[in-house]
């Protein structure tokens, strides 16, 4: 299809869709005029029933815990998909690559500081996910991001352990499997799948919210490792020619 034909088709289509959007918006309640009962109900019941002060995570890991398990497996399926797409079966182009270390001391220093701060913030977001804003999903992304900074400021070799799929796979299994096992543990006790098993503790402390804490940690691990696996797969196809002065460094 030529570019002109495509634009000719696109313009009326977008105008039509825009018109439909305008029609739909005109029928919505105004911004801030929230009517649905579910938000109010959850805000009233999650803290008293589950002692999870972060109601969003209480919803994610308890009220709709089964959905979140599906969500974790979406991530898992994507890692498998990217691995299969990028796997080069011939082995051609699989050269051991060494990239230049960042030469500037300032960049290296700032980078190392960023790794430290990033890891700390990531761990805090995961650990306190069910108490304050955060949770396993955003925290896991921050943790993986902090580790990827190591690649930016260090060398390919420094990053070695984090692109070793065989080392990462057990952790991905721990994260994804830990979620399912927590659910199955309830079944084994004759309760419904993913029933919140443990004592609810004191709201607003780390020892609260029962299974939510475990599911939160499991998804934190699963997300961190999934992101690292995705990055490792892309890294493997990225070829950097060695510069003469880098050989043997």
């Amino acid at each position: 299809m030529s570019r002109r034909v495509r634009l000719a088709l696109l313009t009326p289509a977008l105008l039509g869709l825009g018109g439909l959007f305008a029609w739909a918006i005109a029928g919505l309640p105004e911004f801030g005029d929230y009517r649905g009962p579910y938000g109010y109900v959850l805000n009233q019941i999650v803290v008293p029933l589950r002692h999870s002060t972060n109601v969003v995570m209480g919803t994610t890991f308890d009220v709709r815990g089964l959905d979140t398990m599906g969500e974790e497996f979406i991530l898992y399926a994507a890692v498998v998909g990217v691995t299969l797409l990028l796997r080069d079966e011939s082995g051609a182009g699989r050269v051991e690559r060494r990239t230049r270390r960042a030469r500037s001391d300032t960049v290296r220093l700032l980078g190392v500081l960023m790794i430290g701060v990033g890891l700390l913030v990531g761990l805090w977001l995961v650990a306190f996910g069910y108490i304050t804003p955060g949770g396993g999903f955003p925290g896991g992304v921050v943790l993986a991001g902090a580790i990827v900074v190591l690649y930016l400021v260090g060398s390919h070799r420094d990053y070695g352990p984090f692109r070793n799929e065989h080392a990462l796979d057990p952790f991905e299994g721990l994260g994804a499997g830990g979620y399912v096992i927590t659910g199955l543990a309830a079944l084994a006790l004759g309760l419904q799948f993913l029933t919140n098993l443990f004592g609810y503790g004191k709201a607003g402390t780390l020892l609260s919210a029962g299974s939510i804490g475990i599911l939160n940690a499991a998804s934190g691990i699963a997300v961190t490792v999934a992101m690292l696996l995705l990055f490792a797969e892309f890294l493997e196809t990225y070829v950097v020619p060695l510069e003469p002065e880098d050989v043997g460094s």
Binding site: Y34, V46, V56, G58, T59, T60, T68, E71, P138
Partner: peptide, 10 residues
């Protein structure tokens, strides 16, 4: 509403 926030996460 926390429900839509959890959905946004997904």
């Amino acid at each position: 509403d926390p429900v839509v926030q959890a959905l946004t996460l997904t």
